[in-house]
Amino acid sequence: MYSFFFRFKKLYNEQIVYMVNDKNRKKLPLILFELLRYMILKKDTPQNYIKYGGYKKGADTTELIKYIPGATFDKFRSKHLNDKRYLFQVENKWELNRKLFASGLKTSDIICKIEKGKIVLPSDEKETTISALVSRIKEDFVIKPIADSAQGNGLEFVCYSQATNLYTILSKYIENSYTTPVLLEYKIKQHKDISELYPIAVNTIRIDTFLRLDGRVNIFGSTLRTGRNGRKVDNWSGRSGGIAVKIDLETGCLDKVGLDYYLNNYKSHPDTGTTFNSYPVPYFNEVKAMVKKAARCFPKVRSIGWDVAIAENGPLIIEGNSDYSLQIQACTGPYLLNKVFTGAMKQELLSIKKGKKYEKHFVC
């Protein structure tokens, strides 16, 4: 019940209000008629109609059926793909980092975790003191929740040269760590080509993987997310205002147009003027190989959306998301037209009792 009200509140605050105030929308009676028709025919919540711009003038609502319903996929993923007993391995950034590091994969450079009043180092998992920790830190760093930091919530950026009292800053987090454990990570120095798009935030790649029952790993889609308006986060949401651009999985280059959360188009970044069309993403082949290897580390969590940064010397994994949103389709295109997605789902449904009931949602 809490989840339902949280989702509705988010939908209302970020999308319904915007839709009603959009000067380019259809008339409200028509919107209500189309919305109800979509819900009846698709047996889905109204989110897809709103998320994918069905309310905009000239929008063809028949195109909406090609988008995978997010709520339906969430239920399917939770029931059949991602075992809830193992989600902590992905969602807990400390556990994720340990598992990936043990597999030889590059991750964020963690300084320590602060949990239950204790400061623990990643190298040997031994405790240290706040004084010893302060003496170790010599660079800018980020403090983030070990879990539940969606859309940049709970992040604090600390500039080492301007921090007058690290002891006080860290003491606050130690005191609160019984309810909100955190990680300290050194700030990522991103590749200069990614900084040219937007230098203030670490602009990350969202790339989703699916681990099939036969051990193959499919990549369904990928976008590059950039910050804007002076924000230090790149999150693609109504609140953060970021821009997402499709990455061609074959060429590793950006699409012609980027989109904000409300589907407004941008041929170039509004802050830097850098053109998106055919802009090459450094190390993209390495990114694909990295997330495929990472996906195999979690055989019980088979559907993961990865956030990957491009550092000066190559890609590194920032986090994994076992409940990532399929709104990535707004940039990559509808997943019902994605042959990799529909092929993987068709095979998956054959192994599931009563899998046929999902065919109309996931298979052409």
Rank of each mutant, 00 (worst) to 15 (best):
S3M: 11
F5Y: 14
E14I: 01
V17M: 04
N21Y: 01
I31K: 02
L32R: 05
L36P: 03
M39H: 05
K42V: 06
I50F: 02
G53P: 08
K56M: 13
A59W: 01
D60H: 11
T62D: 15
I65P: 00
P69N: 06
F73R: 00
F73H: 05
F73Y: 15
F76G: 00
L81W: 13
R85H: 14
V90K: 02
K93A: 11
L100I: 13
S108H: 06
I114W: 04
E115F: 04
V120L: 03
L121M: 15
E125C: 09
T128E: 06
I130G: 11
S131F: 14
A147P: 00
A147K: 12
A150K: 02
G154Q: 10
G154H: 09
Y160M: 10
A163Q: 13
N165I: 07
T168D: 13
E175W: 07
P181N: 08
V182P: 04
K192I: 12
Y198H: 04
A201K: 03
A201R: 02
I205A: 05
D214S: 08
V217Y: 12
V217W: 12
F220V: 07
R225P: 03
T226W: 00
G227R: 07
R231I: 00
W236V: 00
S237H: 01
R239H: 12
K246N: 12
G252V: 07
L254V: 02
L259K: 05
Y261E: 05
Y262F: 07
N265C: 05
Y266M: 03
T275E: 12
N277Y: 10
S278I: 02
N285E: 15
K288L: 10
M290L: 15
K293F: 04
A295K: 03
A309F: 14
A311P: 09
A311C: 12
Q329T: 05
G333N: 08
F341T: 05
K360A: 08
V363I: 14
